[in-house]
Design a protein around this nucleic acid. Sequence first.
DNA 1: GGCTATCTATCAAGCGTTTGCTCGATTCTG
DNA 2: CAGAATCGAGCAAACGCTTGATAGATAGCC
Lengths: 203, 203
Amino acid sequence: MVAVTKNGRSAPTSERRDELLAIAARLIATRGFSATTVRDVADEAGILSGSLYHHFSSKEAILAELLKRFMTTLLDRFEKIAAETDSPREALDLLVDQAFRTIESEPDAVGIYQNESSFLATQQGFEFVSEHSARIEQIWMTAIRDGQASGDFRASVDPAITYRFIRDSVWATGRWFRPGGRHTAESLSAHYLDFLHQGLLAD
Amino acid sequence: MVAVTKNGRSAPTSERRDELLAIAARLIATRGFSATTVRDVADEAGILSGSLYHHFSSKEAILAELLKRFMTTLLDRFEKIAAETDSPREALDLLVDQAFRTIESEPDAVGIYQNESSFLATQQGFEFVSEHSARIEQIWMTAIRDGQASGDFRASVDPAITYRFIRDSVWATGRWFRPGGRHTAESLSAHYLDFLHQGLLAD
DNA sequence: GGCTATCTATCAAGCGTTTGCTCGATTCTG
DNA sequence: CAGAATCGAGCAAACGCTTGATAGATAGCC
């Protein structure tokens, strides 16, 4: 059942498994979870649909593993930023920057996260989605609130609403940003931070 | 085939039809199109699944009609704003305001628009999606560009990227904003416009 | 006003296909 | 040889959709 490779690492992980996960992620991100069939994934991988069940216990398990991997590493990165920064403004800037880098490096996972997580949050076996979302929200809102307390950020904006505005506009970038085009994660991030800091109005 | 009611209006429209469309919209908005079955819709309406086909030719036709109605009236409203405003800044403010009002009045259609339109844009029978999206984009970007030309908006932001930031953050509000809670469309709109105008940083 | 013809909305039953998944047999590989 | 990966065949359920029959309302007519 569980692969034990020669490097001694015992885990349900292998190169082939990761390939299949990546294929599934790409299809699910573009067509949606329930519009993606196990036969679609198997076809893309060059195997029969039944063979997928040597690697995964169910179609849902594939989705759960994709989302769990993504959200766990994302939360780790955010927690690291929160712990290692001095000023709230630096923290928020780095959080935004990290989000854009994640969009660049893992566009499929980001797409799945956006499309499926809201419905999944209430689903059995996906409790980690709302748990991790809550902890991420806490990190971002702490940065915003601390920034208001320190006088860096305007006190008149509602932290909760502002967080959602920022979160949604940043992650939604994943819907149209494709590496290799006119923009890079760096340029997008810089552009967004300027927009976020200064607003649209001229002085 | 086509209902001709006593008021002389000939169209494939009726009260019952609209009810069924509203039910389908609610389910599709929450679970996604392909995760929503015709039996789900029929159950919710208290009829058998086959009876749906007296009103609609296919499941896809229901989705197409929902999206077409929504995008057509939305485009009309945006065009009216563009035509009736004097300054670019007033235009952009009213566009944002209209978007929030639409989220409030038609949350299901907005949800479907967000979740399904990107995949649908390439689909046969849904050409109107990308056509209307392009015209909407043109209206918004004209407002942004004109505002930059007039000196109202900062010239250093990229209009195309800025449009997408605004569009995504505004529409994504529909994912968490539910009328009857702490916020109204008005308060959200005012809050967002302040955020958009001034940015986050204190002076 | 009563009778009939028409039309609308639904039911009841089921069709053909697709779906997620199972399981023993087989091939591949270190 | 042993274990991992895949095949081949198929099952039961769910899917979108079709079709003929059936109530219930509406309209026309004398």
